[in-house]
Design a protein around this nucleic acid. Structure first.
Lengths: 124, 124
DNA sequence: ATTACTGTATTAAGCGCTTAATACAATAAT
DNA sequence: ATTATTGTATTAAGCGCTTAATACAGTAAT
């Protein structure tokens, strides 16, 4: 995984976002087993308590389920996964669009800006 | 101003972003006078110390200059303002594009997604 | 001269996040 | 049966952000 953590926001919040994306993007397939709290915490370079806190949130969202002592597993609810993916994409766009509007970009200018950026990154 | 502050990130960081956008979007014109630390702090509902901290950062960036006892003023460096605006827009897009890529969207799908969202928000 | 308003600095307290160091219960593996 | 591994819980400490309460110096306004 990426584990690009900055000190500007609570780590557990960032872990939630990272793990959420891993799940809804399909990199961690439905029904697949998760690494243990301790292992993932070590891999991410954080305290097990902090990783546990992130897991608790993902369970509230039902993206993870806990099998008492054998570990955690990704949900098999494909609809939930799909809806969550769309929700994240929309939320991310809204954040971006809000900033652009505050910067004085019109809707058309926003679209033009995006097209230009994507072309540049694709062509070289 | 907006003053939409959340508790998830340091307030002074959010103040920096808000004020930066006010300046580079032209809502606070070049050379115009700023409100005092105390007034702006009260308006934003934060402690004067916290607002002061945000101001210090904007001065480091030279977007503000301090006139010892008569107050603070927006820079008149139009090029700096323009470059900063572009830099913010690019950074915001990069954040958005990175998330979309992590979610499994291709460049084309990203553009399609943006077009769709903008149309929806415009048409109703 | 006095008053009011600037920016600036300091100190102490509170709060949430994070870490460290454990400990316990339940179960899979041997 | 024993061992290892799972999730889970607790306590104490440290750290940065935030607030509160001041205080001081410089200058504009009167």
């Amino acid at each position: 995984m990426s584990w690009k953590l900055d000190s500007d926001r609570p780590i557990y919040t960032q872990l939630i976002e990272i793990l959420k994306i891993e799940i809804v993007s399909g990199k961690l397939p439905p029904g697949s087993k998760f690494k243990s709290v301790r292992d993932l915490a070590m891999e991410a370079g954080v305290n097990p308590n902090t990783m546990q806190r992130a897991f608790a949130e993902l369970e509230d969202l039902e993206l993870l389920r806990t099998e008492r002592t054998s570990g955690r597993f990704v949900t098999e609810d494909a609809e939930l996964i799909g809806k969550t993916r769309d929700a994240i994409a929309s939320a991310q766009f809204d954040l971006f669009a809000e900033k652009m509007e505050q910067l004085g970009f019109s809707k058309r200018e926003l679209v033009d800006f995006v097209n230009k950026k994507v072309e540049v990154e694709s062509d070289g």
